[in-house]
Every structure is written in structure tokens, then in C-alpha cells.
């Protein structure tokens, strides 16, 4: 369900609606589980929607299509925000989401590639994603295929040393078909990233490993579209990182910026407030 054929304003409006849908579904699904990652999913809602309704090349009726773009969440705990989109674009019926977190369900807090159509790699151990992406990008090169691999990471994830092993290798192997997306929401489980274990400056770190660095407002759909439109050619020799300035808990005023909502459980009244705010688009 690509919006690439639409007028830009129409595409932007549709993607915004889908981001809203992802947030509302996240609240519904977490209400089944009684605990989940609201804050770190809401910070990527526009990123998810822009990827699946604009940028990614895939076929939901042929999930293993060899030439599809790959999308891997290093921060697998945002999967609850992606599952509703995968259902909406046709990878599986929406009703299957109702099993979310129940015994034996394919849908858990972290995604499983062997159980969920549309998930390109299982994740959950923070810091693996970019290495997986390096392997997928090398695989595309070996096969002479032109797809891109997109890897989403949190800013907290950048504290993992393996990320920088992977960044070094992507620069070294000149993987122009690899795109890293940093959801820079500035909080982790225990607190504010900058205070807890400072990873700044982020931009200069990537540049020093030989990456093309783009900075963008991660909630501005129009800007995200422009960024994706201007990616270097897939045959270029430089991997690209898109550092997205985002807000943890975006869309629900009492959650925004708060690390306390990284994993949480909303009470009934708070669910009503949150839904009203998301539907109102505040």
C-alpha cells in the first residue's frame, strides 16, 4: 500500500492517519498484556508509517520475496507499534492481533521472524540489529540485488559496543545499500540518556565511521519523505544514517519525554485520556 503515487499532501495526510492508528492500536494491544512499551513505540510512529506506506518496497502477499527491502528493529521492543501496520498492509488478518501476548501467540513484546509474516529478523537483544543489517546488505551485494536494508535503533541502543563494530564494518565494506535510522528519543529504562550514559555527540560518531549523516524531525512526515527521497543511490559507497529527533511517548501529553513510560500499564481513565489526545491529534 504505497502512497508514492499520491500527491505529496495526500500522502502526508494518509501517513499521519496511519501513525495515529499505530498509536491507538498500541494502546489497545498493551491493554491485553497489562504492560508494554508505549513511550518507545510512540516515538517511532511516524517513522513506521512513512516506511510502510511510502518508502519500503515489499509484497505483503509474498513476504519472503527475495528483492524486497528489509526492515529490522534493533529496538525490538517497538514491535507493538509495527504489528498493526503489518496487519493493515495485508501481511495477516487484523483479528490475529487479538492474541497479542496470550499463551503461544506469535505476537509478543519482541518480534519473531519465523512466526510473523513481514518481520524480516527476530530481535530483542539490543545492539544486534545493525550487524544483521550489515549481513543483509552484503547478501544483496553477493546476489547483485538492488534492495535496501533499513535498521531502526534507539539512542540508548547506541550504548551497545556491537553497534560501533557494525558501524565500522558498514563503512569499511562501503554498504551504500544500508540505512540506519536512529530514534533519538533521549530516554532509556532508567532515565535520560544524556545523564545516565551520555552517547553524544551522535552525529560526529557516525561521520567518523564513514557514514552519510542526515538529521530530521522524526515526527515530521513531510521531512521524513524528503529524507527518504534524497537517499544516495543504492549503488553508492556510503551507508546513510538518519538521526531522527523524536519525543518519547509522542502524542500523549502526560507521557511525552518521560522515561517512566518506557514500559508501563495505563489505567482505564488514562487509556481514555490517551485515546482522546491521539484522536485529537495533539
Amino acid at each position: 500500500m504505497s502512497t508514492q503515487t499520491l500527491e505529496k499532501s495526500e500522502a502526508v495526510n494518509l501517513i499521519r492517519e496511519k501513525a495515529k492508528m499505530s498509536r491507538l492500536e498500541t494502546i489497545r494491544l498493551i491493554s491485553y498484556a497489562k504492560s508494554g512499551h508505549y513511550g518507545s513505540s510512540f516515538s517511532c510512529s511516524e517513522i513506521f508509517a512513512t516506511l510502510y506506506y511510502y518508502q519500503l518496497n515489499y509484497d505483503s502477499k509474498n513476504p519472503k520475496w527475495a528483492e524486497r527491502d528489509r526492515f529490522v528493529m534493533g529496538k525490538g521492543h517497538s514491535a507493538v507499534g509495527v504489528y498493526p501496520i503489518l496487519a493493515d498492509v495485508g501481511f495477516f488478518p487484523k483479528e490475529e492481533l487479538d492474541t497479542y501476548t496470550s499463551l503461544g501467540s506469535p505476537f509478543g513484546d519482541h518480534p519473531d521472524m519465523n512466526k510473523i509474516k513481514g518481520i524480516d529478523f527476530s530481535s530483542g537483544s539490543i545492539g544486534h540489529g545493525l550487524s544483521v543489517g550489515v549481513g543483509m546488505s552484503l547478501g544483496a551485494r553477493v546476489d547483485g540485488l538492488k534492495y535496501r536494508t533499513y535498521i531502526l535503533m534507539g539512542d540508548g541502543e547506541l550504548q551497545e559496543g556491537q553497534v560501533w563494530e557494525a558501524a565500522m564494518s558498514a563503512g569499511n565494506f562501503k554498504l551504500g545499500n544500508l540505512v540506519a535510522i536512529v530514534d533519538n528519543n533521549k530516554v532509556t529504562v532508567d532515565g535520560v540518556t544524556k545523564e545516565l550514559m551520555n552517547v553524544n555527540p551522535i552525529k560526529e560518531k557516525w561521520e567518523s565511521f564513514g557514514w552519510n549523516v542526515v538529521e530530521v524531525d522524526g515526527h515530521d512526515v513531510e521531512a521524513l519523505i524528503d529524507t527518504f527521497d534524497n537517499l544516495p543511490n543504492v549503488d553508492s559507497k556510503t551507508p546513510t544514517v538518519i538521526i531522527c529527533d523524536t519525543v518519547a511517548g509522542k502524542g500523549v501529553s502526560f507521557m511525552e519525554h518521560g522515561f517512566e513510560w518506557h514500559v508501563a500499564n495505563l489505567g482505564e481513565d488514562d487509556i481514555k485520556r490517551a485515546i482522546a489526545e491521539i484522536e485529537g491529534g495533539k
Binding site: 524480516d120 550487524s131 544483521v132 552484503l138 547478501g139 553477493v142 546476489d143 565500522m168
Partner: peptide
């Protein structure tokens, strides 16, 4: 073209191997 030396970065190498395997 099918041989990759990752330098002294074993964890990245193993995980990248998994990424490669996922592409067949």
C-alpha cells in the same frame, strides 16, 4: 567476493552471518 574479514569484531561477524543467512 563471498569472503568477508571483519577484523577483531567477532560479535558483529557472527550476527552479520545471521543476516547473510536470512538472505538465503
Amino acid at each position: 567476493d563471498r569472503f568477508f574479514d571483519f577484523g577483531l569484531a567477532e560479535k558483529n561477524m557472527v550476527t552479520a552471518a545471521a543476516g547473510l543467512a536470512s538472505t538465503g
